[in-house]
Design a protein around this nucleic acid. Structure first.
Lengths: 137, 137
DNA sequence: TCTTACATTGGACATTGTCTAAGTCAAGAA
DNA sequence: TTCTTGACTTAGACAATGTCCAATGTAAGA
């Protein structure tokens, strides 16, 4: 993740303790946290960090393309630090856990141009839904 | 849409003016409204209908499988009345408009079992994102 | 070290959705 | 038709998530 911090500094990011902590939290496990979870984990390392800063920083990381914003249900968005490898998501319909998966094939090729209605398509997301082994119990 | 009302009555639904109005709004155009938009349109026909009833009714229609709930961004969920034909969504990244599209191929076949992590997969959603002709300006 | 533009903070506010207690009514029974 | 009853609706409080702003703090270059 020091890679990430270097990249960001190279893009003119001012390196503050708060931004460093948010970046470290995202780098930890390969889990997709909500903003509130990121805030809770960041608070453990930097107790005075504010909610607004966490939201700001996450938004900046998304804008810079370092993190992907995922909204799989109507609840809180989740932040996916695995932005540099193409992948899709497998979501548990009960507990909301997300796993990264790597389907074969290119879904974009499956959409004929007459079905594109003049849109300039820039991304395709595939979400697989079901019950995880724990919730299927 | 009287089809829909008949089906619902057959399932023991009590047919109220409020539910009828919500169903009519969804039946109108093939647009994917938010709950608030449904409420606004329903209010034109039945001024005293409450927000809670609109939310309740939409939730019931989703549970009954008559309408699909779509959350393409972190904003309000949208309700898709086209539940009886398999389709996917094309979303404008700027204005949020949704169009139904019909890709060829079966995305579920593209996910090898070793990438399923023991999940019992029950649905696959594909979302194409890009700028619509109006927003591409 | 000094300066200053950029970052952070706390809290108010906005949006979307959920819940509850009290009143209302659709639909079957008599 | 009228009555009865349990399901439905309502208004508003509340909850969850996210955004905005003015005041304050600070990283980094001069």
């Amino acid at each position: 993740m020091s890679d990430l911090l270097e990249r960001l500094r190279g893009r003119g990011w001012r390196l503050t303790a708060q931004r460093r902590v948010v970046a470290e939290v995202l780098d930890g496990d390969h889990v997709h946290y909500t903003a509130d979870e990121v805030h809770a984990l960041a608070t453990e390392r930097l107790p005075e960090i504010s909610r607004a800063t966490v939201y700001n920083t996450l938004g900046e990381l998304v804008t810079l393309g370092e993190v992907i914003e995922v909204s799989t249900d109507g609840r809180a968005k989740r932040y996916d630090p695995n932005a540099h490898h193409a992948h899709q998501h497998l979501v548990c319909a009960r507990c909301g856990t997300i796993r990264d998966v790597h389907p074969s094939g290119d879904p974009l090729a499956d959409l004929p141009s007459k079905e594109r209605y003049g849109f300039a398509i820039s991304a395709v997301e595939v979400t697989y839904r079901g019950l995880c082994p724990d919730c299927a119990g």
